[in-house]
């Protein structure tokens, strides 16, 4: 673990301070966890025989429609993430509670994405039959790896100022492309339907 018991607890890593103790572990562990998560998800999706059907919620015509709406909600909260991060870094004027907004919109977005990913992996699997599906499969695994890395990095103090924005940006970009290659595709193909 990268826990340093003497470190000062800090609400958000201040951008760009000097880093006196550049322990490699605090970068290595998040990177290794990220890789392990992404590879494990991909391997499960590839090895597990897709079940095809899973339960659905009443009011939705199909599980895919439900997923598309969940994913759209997740993307909405991800955009809140972008705006609140800009507030935290002083690029936008923001209220005092913008850090809480950032934390909680991120949690909501992540928790919304989990059921979608479970369905993807359980019912559909890791597929490569066309470029949209391939890109979606790769980035779907990447997203959860990158998100894990982001969460673990948050626990480290005195990171280089550019690191969290870069990792956060990767997470946001991945989620956006995942959405474009699934929910947007669904809405364009089948209409904006529930």
């Amino acid at each position: 673990m990268t826990v340093d018991p003497n470190a000062v607890t800090q609400d958000f890593p201040s951008p760009g301070p000097g880093h006196r103790r550049p322990g490699a572990a605090r970068y290595l562990i998040p990177a290794l966890v990220a890789g392990a998560v992404a590879v494990a998800l991909g391997a499960y999706g590839k090895v597990h025989d897709p079940a095809g059907t899973v339960f659905n919620l009443a009011g939705f015509s199909s599980t895919i429609a439900l997923k598309s709406w969940l994913a759209t909600a997740a993307v909405f909260f991800a955009l809140v993430q972008l705006v609140s991060a800009l507030m935290l870094y002083g690029r936008l004027p923001g209220p005092a509670w913008s850090s809480a907004l950032h934390r909680w919109s991120g949690r909501v977005a992540f928790l919304l994405s989990v059921p979608v990913a479970v369905h993807c992996l359980y019912a559909l699997g890791y597929q490569t039959y066309d470029s949209r599906v391939l890109l979606h499969s790769i980035l779907g695994c990447f997203f959860f790896g990158a998100f894990s890395a982001k969460m673990l990095l948050l626990r480290s103090e005195r990171l280089p100022g550019w690191l969290l924005p870069i990792v956060g940006g990767l997470v946001l970009t991945a989620l956006t492309i995942i959405w474009l290659t699934s929910a947007l595709w669904f809405f364009r193909t089948f209409g904006v339907t529930t």
Partner: peptide, 16 residues
Amino acid sequence: KRPGPLLTLLAGLLVG
């Protein structure tokens, strides 16, 4: 220190 991110990951794992 800062258990929030770990709890978030854990919650996601549990939901999954």
